[in-house]
Amino acid sequence: MSDTVTVSPSSVDLRVQLGRLHLANPILVASGTFGYAREMEHLVDLGRLGGILPKTITMAARPGNPPWRTVEASAGLLNSIGLDNDGLEAFIEHHLPYLAGLPTAIIVSIAGRTVDEFVAMAARLDREAGIAGLELNISCPNVSGGVDFGTDAGLCGQLVRNVLSACRIPVIAKLTPNVTRIADIAIAASEAGADAISLINTVQGMAVDWRKRKPILGNVLGGLSGPAIKPIALRCVHQVRQAVRTPLIGIGGIATIDDVMEFFVAGASAVQIGTANYYDPTVSMKLLDRLPAALSEAGAASVAELTGTLQLPARPSADLPSKPSGT
């Protein structure tokens, strides 16, 4: 890429490749922020999306946490939904047929309580047609044991390896920012062979009603999302990019085309739109409208030409991970 090269918006190639996963464009919608997609069919042209991640499913149905489940923070949203879902078989019966018929990549988000449960879910989904990828939700802060696999590098690596050997579907590991060194977890996922790493899930937080002396969320603690966490997400993408070569999917407060471009430069090959879907239901379409011109302005003929082009100051930051991934 050089300043003298000009790329017209119409000639920009929006396709991206994340390991074995090929997407028509890099704008995806994040799990838990887009329902089962059908809720959005009158507001969004679902086929234009690079990919859809339906709400996380678990092996058995879960009622989810008691209300209140969300409360607003400054430029952000705290949530503690608690993986409310009807379970794997109900998803396959009621939601997958519709999703599989959409002309976009369906990446199914799954959460298990044990390695065996993740593996059993992956093996079951492997028998179904129309699934482009699996995202392992090892980062939900709102269920007991939900973050164990995302906070322990050894467990994370073991989980990714076992799931990969149980199915033929490309696998993405979704990381939590609620760790001391996120790059360590990413290295484990990368060395285990994950096709891509998505980051970040929500940042743990809480809200208090001081007059009642009570927590506002029914589950006491929740996860913070929205523009408030974008700097944290960018930092995580940057740190992980320094540590692994596995393609990254940036998530965290993305709402504008500038946000999208920042994540590409920091090291992401694609992005997921989350909380912005709540307060601007057609945001994903607006970003797709603006993406070609933005890439053209950057002189990039494709997203890959922009990914990880961040120019760091000459003296590297002292706390970057020292060990690059073997992959």
Partner: peptide
Amino acid sequence: PMACGIGICFSCVVKLDDGQGGWDY
């Protein structure tokens, strides 16, 4: 309390009889 109004966030749940003696949000 709602965050989206369009069914994608699962915030605004209410305990409803499921017609089989139990309930569901």
